[in-house]
Nucleic acid binder design. Structure first.
Length: 204
DNA sequence: CGTACGATCTGCT
DNA sequence: GCAGATCGTACGA
């Protein structure tokens, strides 16, 4: 087990990093409660040149300011007034790259996550989406700007490797407004068969 | 200051 | 399959 450090996030290819994050574990320790899940889906947002990015064209506001900082911090924002979407900031200071974590397979602290999600069962939909993933892990907008090497939120490599063919690239979700950039294959998702197998193994 | 809307989820049909 | 929820943020006046 290895906690990913600054050197992992400071690299400049956010699309490669996004693919590499599939299979890593997103872990939180919030109010003394440890919870985690294996990342099964991500999306890359490639900074000022990406029409789907909050930083497109160099847009810089109080909300997205942390994107302009060095990689290795969280960027959490509220979507549709309800959902707290968690992103990993990458690349050096001044290049606002980010990766949206879209889904996890729940692993540690299942009982805690079920309470947070107000669920009594671990269904397939339990944390299959960026809003439900953050809710399960207890991540809120107040955690925006947190360093990921810290004690609250971090990402672990537990040695799980997938074949490149098992990580499906495709267009990002919900970014139709981004014109031709909406078609870029910046979404990475573990193939459904593997998701099912791993889910069955961990939740039986 | 007023207003429109979003990197979504859920429950109901 | 679809509408409603729900509110911080962005942006124009």
């Amino acid at each position: 087990m290895k906690v990913l450090g600054k050197e992992f996030f400071l690299r400049n290819n956010v699309v490669d990093i996004s693919r590499e994050l599939v299979g890593k574990f997103l872990v939180t320790n919030i109010k003394g409660k440890l919870t985690s899940g294996m990342i099964s889906e991500t999306e890359a947002y490639r900074g000022v040149v990406d029409k789907a990015s909050h930083a497109y064209g160099g847009k810089r506001t109080a909300r997205n300011e942390v994107m302009y900082g060095a990689g290795g911090n969280s960027y959490v924002y509220l979507c549709y007034g309800i959902h707290h979407l968690f992103n990993v900031v990458t690349n050096k200071e001044g290049t606002p790259h980010a990766i949206l974590i879209r889904a996890i397979i729940p692993k540690d602290g299942l009982d805690i996550m079920m309470k947070r999600r107000k669920q009594t069962k671990l269904t397939r939909k339990f944390s299959d989406g960026p809003g439900t993933t953050s809710e399960a892990l207890g991540i809120k907008t107040l955690h925006s700007g947190e360093p990921l090497s810290g004690k609250t939120i971090w990402i672990e490599d537990r040695g799980i490797k997938f074949r490149r063919n098992d990580i499906i690239a495709g267009p990002r979700i919900g970014v139709d407004y981004a014109g031709e950039d909406a078609l870029l294959p910046y979404r990475f998702r573990l193939n459904e068969k593997l998701i099912t197998e791993i889910t069955n193994e961990w939740h039986s």
